[in-house]
Design a protein around this nucleic acid. Structure first.
Length: 110
DNA sequence: CTGGTGACAGACT
DNA sequence: CAGTCTGCCACCA
């Protein structure tokens, strides 16, 4: 594995793309699904590059606490929250309400 | 090549 | 129980 998997990001995008409407997932879940459970940070990095990709609903990806940590990077702080609420996901204080209920694990569905 | 960073997560104090 | 710290992997300068 000399190459650092240039497709790693693409894989992350693919998983996020498969996130159902009104559902949310965590970086760790995606990382674990990809096999890099310990690189949850790298997953977040991929999200950073996902800016501009409509196929990558990064707003559906939150941290383990269900906290919208990445809202700061969405350009519009309220944009991420608005998108989630628009999908039926209630967000309070930048945190997903009943995160566990809206939680979607790729390893369980896929 | 080395060092530093980062939208996390888990373990420790 | 809450705050702090490291580990981990990939990318950028």
């Amino acid at each position: 594995m000399s190459d650092r998997d240039p497709h790693f990001f693409q894989r992350v995008y693919e998983v996020v793309r498969q996130v159902p409407y009104g559902r949310v997932t965590s970086y760790g879940a995606i990382a674990r699904y990809l096999g890099t459970a310990r690189s949850a940070r790298v997953v977040g990095w991929a999200m950073n590059q996902s800016h501009g990709m409509e196929d990558v609903p990064a707003h559906r990806v939150v941290n383990r606490n269900g906290l919208l940590t990445g809202k700061h990077h969405f350009g519009g702080t309220r944009l991420m929250q608005q998108l989630l609420e628009n999908e039926g996901v209630r967000v309070v204080e930048n945190q997903v309400v009943d995160f566990r209920r809206h939680y979607w694990d790729p390893g369980e569905e896929l």
